[in-house]
C-alpha cells in the first residue's frame, strides 16, 4: 500500500508531483492507524503553506492528528468533498481521499521527502 510513483514524509503524508504542482494526502498507513475518519480541516485556496509546518488536521472516532505540508507553496485547490465524506480518505487515501493541490515555490520539492523505498523502511522501524 505504498504506491511507487509518490513521495512521502516522515509524518505520513504523500505527494504526487504534477509539473510544478503537488497533490497531497495522507498515507494508507496513516488512515489505518487513525481508524474511521470523521472530520477534516484543510487550508483554503490561496493560503501559503510551508514544508514541515502544520496545514490542517484530521479527526477519527478515537483520535486526532495534524497534517503537515510536505512542500512550500500556495494552495490552488482543496478537496471540498472531504467535508461531508471524510471516509473517502479511509477508502481511497491515494485517490478520492486527496486533500490539497499546492503550486510549489522555492527549492526542489524532493528535498527532505522520502522515496517509496525509504518510506517502507520507516514503517518497518
Amino acid at each position: 500500500m505504498i504506491p511507487d510513483d509518490l513521495l512521502y514524509t516522515k509524518t505520513h503524508e504523500w505527494v504526487r508531483m504534477e509539473d510544478d504542482e503537488a497533490v497531497v494526502g495522507i498515507t494508507h498507513f496513516a488512515q489505518s492507524q487513525l481508524g474511521d475518519l470523521t472530520f477534516v480541516e484543510l487550508p483554503k485556496v490561496g493560503d501559503t503553506v510551508t514544508a514541515g509546518e502544520e496545514m490542517g488536521s484530521v479527526e477519527s472516532v478515537k483520535a486526532a492528528s495534524e497534517i503537515y505540508s510536505p512542500v512550500d507553496g500556495e494552495v490552488v485547490a482543496v478537496n471540498e468533498e472531504l467535508a461531508d465524506t471524510p471516509e473517502a480518505i479511509n477508502e481511497d487515501p491515494y485517490g478520492e481521499g486527496w486533500m490539497v493541490r499546492v503550486r510549489v515555490t522555492g527549492g526542489q520539492p524532493s528535498d527532505g521527502l522520502l522515496t517509496p523505498e525509504e518510506y517502507a523502511e520507516l514503517l518497518e522501524e
Binding site: G35, D36, V61, K62, E87, N90
Partner: peptide, 9 residues
C-alpha cells in the same frame, strides 16, 4: 479488542 472492521461499521 478496540475494533475489527472499523468503529463506524
Amino acid at each position: 479488542p478496540i475494533q475489527y472492521a472499523g468503529i463506524i461499521a
